[in-house]
């Protein structure tokens, strides 16, 4: 009789009983609806133990990779520890370097803690040690780089970004917890065409995903669209052009809404550009990062353009306004 550990308590699961039924029987209410593995309302995460294959049917690959499963159709065969999310320990690391990438974006490199494990494209929550101010930033590095890289845009009146630009000094300590996020590349289907679209510092997670994709030997075409209002908002252009020269499957398309268009680039609304350049997007796997309204528009355009819902991975950034007046 398997035991289910949940938030410090043990629950015995009867024979032929699903985890959802078991928890409900013990008075622990997990949100649920269809109770047949379709609606995904009862999705929960296995922190220890392996979810049954039936309980992961229909979930996105990125959710499966993080051991999410559907409690209503999981009849456990072994002891499991489950939770709504994984509680990650807080890490303290030094700032290794700070470089200017363009007039409003810097690159920070942080020490990578030992035994820290993440997937390129995930994000961490930075904590300012003296007042616990917390903001999320995507990782632009990939495991093996030996450091964690963030690309930070200065937000007008942004408390964290202005401190990262002007306050924090190299060698000083900063804290974070994480990683989190389900916008990442899972190796496999190496010939599948990939579409990476980012606005502003939406390039950060895409830069990590791109380098992961290339390191895995992905052979299908990879289209990277990086969009900004005007050319001055783009960054890492040289690096991305160099990568595109080295990898014939990679195409880098810098996009602007206004003004001069960089070489090989496009002008227009980024939500429209991928479909208008590439035609049908059927069969693509898409990674969409940046401002939420644009990411949501892209999500819909990609879906209508033929990308399967399961193959759309999105990370809409949320910018927190300042709290004080």
């Amino acid at each position: 009789m398997p035991t289910i550990h949940f938030e410090g308590n043990d629950f015995f699961c009867a024979e032929d009983e699903s985890i959802l039924e078991c928890m409900t029987r013990h008075g622990v209410m997990i949100p649920s609806s269809c109770q047949s593995g379709a609606c995904q309302t009862c999705m929960i995460r296995a922190i220890e133990g392996t979810p049954t294959p039936e309980s992961q049917q229909g979930l996105k690959d990125t959710m499966k990779a993080q051991n999410y499963f559907l409690a209503c159709v999981c009849k456990p065969t072994e002891d499991m520890t489950i939770g709504l999310s994984v509680i990650s320990p807080r890490q303290t690391v030094k700032l290794l370097s700070r470089d200017v990438l363009n007039e409003s974006v810097i690159r920070l490199r942080l020490e990578e803690p030992e035994d820290f494990s993440y997937k390129a494209g995930q994000f961490i929550n930075l904590v300012r040690p003296y007042d616990e101010l917390t903001r999320s930033y995507s990782l632009a590095s990939i495991p093996g780089d030996g450091f964690l890289e963030l690309q930070v845009k200065r937000v007008a009146d942004g408390q964290m970004s202005n401190w990262l630009f002007d306050g924090l000094t190299v060698g000083e300590e900063i804290q974070f917890f994480g990683p989190a996020g389900d916008c990442f590349y899972i190796p496999g289907a190496a010939e599948q065409p990939l579409l990476l679209v980012g606005t502003g510092t939406g390039l950060a997670p895409l830069y990590g995903i791109l380098r992961h994709v290339l390191a895995e030997g992905h052979t299908g075409p990879v289209h990277l669209f990086h969009a900004s209002l005007a050319a001055a908002g783009l960054y890492l252009e040289e690096e991305l052009r160099r990568l595109a020269e080295q990898h014939e499957q990679l195409r880098y398309i810098p996009c602007v809404l206004h003004g001069d268009v960089p070489e090989g680039g496009q002008q227009g609304h980024i939500a429209d550009l991928p479909a208008s350049m590439l035609g049908s997007l059927s069969g693509y796997r898409a990674f969409l990062c940046g401002d939420p309204p644009i990411v949501n528009a892209l999500r819909q355009k990609c879906f209508m353009g033929g990308v399967a819902m399961q193959d759309i991975h999105a990370d809409p950034f949320v910018f927190s306004p300042t709290q004080e007046n």
């Binding site: 609806s33 047949s36 309302t41 879906f303 759309i312």
Partner: peptide
């Protein structure tokens, strides 16, 4: 969109006579 797709999956499962509640 993802939550909506999951709801539609529940709906299509129901109207086709698949397992549902």
């Amino acid at each position: 969109m993802e939550k909506q797709a999951a709801k539609q999956k529940g709906f299509l499962t129901m109207v086709t006579g698949g397992p549902n509640n």
